[in-house]
Amino acid sequence: MKVLCTAIAGAVLLILGILTSISVGASDIDASMVLKSFFEADSSKEQTIIRTLRLPRALVGALVGANLAVAGALMQAITRNSLASPQVFGVNAGASFFIVSAFVFFPNLSSVSLVCVAFIGAAMGGMAVYSFASGGGMTQVKLALAGMAVHFFLSSLTQGMIIFNEQAKDVLYWLVGSINGKTWAHVNMILPWSLFGLLVAAMFSRSVSILVLGENMAQGLGQRVYRIRILAGILVIILAGSSVAVAGPVGFVGLIIPHIVRRLVGGDYRRIIPFSALFGALLLVYADILARFIAYPFESPVGIVTAMIGAPFFLYLAKRGRNIKQ
């Protein structure tokens, strides 16, 4: 019952959020026009703005949020570590470092190859942190330290690039993560990966739940544990990598949402994964609305808002200082 209520409340809030996101912007468009555009399409300027600019932006926000939150949930499941998330795990940092390098050295890459570059980077960043943090059991502190170190390393390299190439400075803003000005092209860029990743994650959520029950119990299932982990890892790379390729490294969504969702619907991953998607989308859509008011009338990157919410949450988790209760 509680789960159903949460689902309905979440869905309603998400729809409201998207509608608000669509009605707020530089040109004055009232809510009735927004609603009208869904039922009576015409080619007026207002409707074109809604259709070609505001709607895709809200959708990209929702997709990126869902992707990152589910990626975070999966990571927390496979590592059984409450700090695991695309940000802490170096996945975002790896993907964005590779994309920045691509911007600088191959400025004419197509969007498809950009996504692939992001995948490679996400995989490398994630694997680096995983392998360095997992020696002798991955504890919270080791994960956080390894993540911080990899992040530090990659941002130093980025700085180095900037020294030799003033042009590279242009990507600094991109590095905060933003969905300002995203269009249908971006929706098309992320949508297939999102759909694939989210659906597969939902399908495998039962296996993921078994994984979380503890390796001892899952041991009986033998080879499967290993395979589930590999699959979850690939899903994380696809979900987080495609998000970074489209919106830059938006931080902390994957850290916060799974914890909130766990609080709301319990520890079963068959629920956690779809709800993470829903609430991740919710968070990013609302954060993006907030971002428009930080430096009004100019747009600020949404990554700033998520960082300001997420960093204190990180502090809260750190203070609690223990792993997810099994």
Binding site: L83, A144, G310, L315, G321
Partner: peptide, 16 residues
């Protein structure tokens, strides 16, 4: 270890 974690978290807040 909690100190280290809290430190990293405070660092993240400053970074934001």
């Amino acid at each position: 270890n909690t100190i280290a974690l809290v430190g990293i978290a405070l660092g993240a807040i400053c970074q934001a």
